[in-house]
Amino acid sequence: MEEVIKIRHLNKNYHTDAGEVNVLKSVDITIEKGEFVAIMGPSGSGKSTFMNILGCLDKVTSGNYFLGGKDTNALSRDELAELRNHMIGFVFQGFNLIPRQNLIDNVALPLVYAGMKAHERKIRAKEILKSVGLEAFGTYLPNQISGGQQQRVAIARALVNRPKLILADEPTGNLDTKTSEEIMQLFCDLNEKEGITIVLVTHEPDIARYAKRLVNFVDGKIQHDGPTALHVKENA
């Protein structure tokens, strides 16, 4: 299988007033193409820190992170930006849409930085908005739609540049149960039909059950890593 993520002896320290804090402690993990991984763990155990490193948004203190075979330590800031643009789709807990731009422009933004022409961007953005069921809302502003709809737009934006990997840090954290289920169904479809690798952080076991593999963080270390006990299809 093709390795999308390979991490070796990853340590992450933060400088604080109280001194150096070791947040991630010698983490080793490999995630292959097409996996759907849920990350769980108590608050403060380092899940978000880990996700930020996976997303090349933060630097490792020591160790190596290979993304799609490339050693991220060796890449410049702009090279990392390009890698994120092509490889990764982000879905955040707080949706993180750009408030002044309508949904089409929000979804098309990664394509702007990829250098795609304006009319092609628009076609692609509309197409992808349609696939998350929001084709009728293209010219709305983010504050004119519901939270669940905003998260769909965020997912559309994450998908627009056909990434290999989707990173989602508590994507359903701000949503009600029913909307959460809809969003998770969307992720499942992407994983199964398009083969996109998904890594997702959640606090809720019900959400984690949608994933195929479960990684448990405790105090900056991987305490458990294995198949999700109850797969969603067995529940259905």
């Binding site: 390009e82 994120r84 750009i98 933004l109 930085y113």
Partner: peptide
């Protein structure tokens, strides 16, 4: 600042 963060996350280079 947050908007800038989002833009950088989804692939904006420094010159953008």
């Amino acid at each position: 600042t947050r908007e800038i963060g989002i833009r950088i996350a989804i692939g904006a280079k420094q010159r953008h």
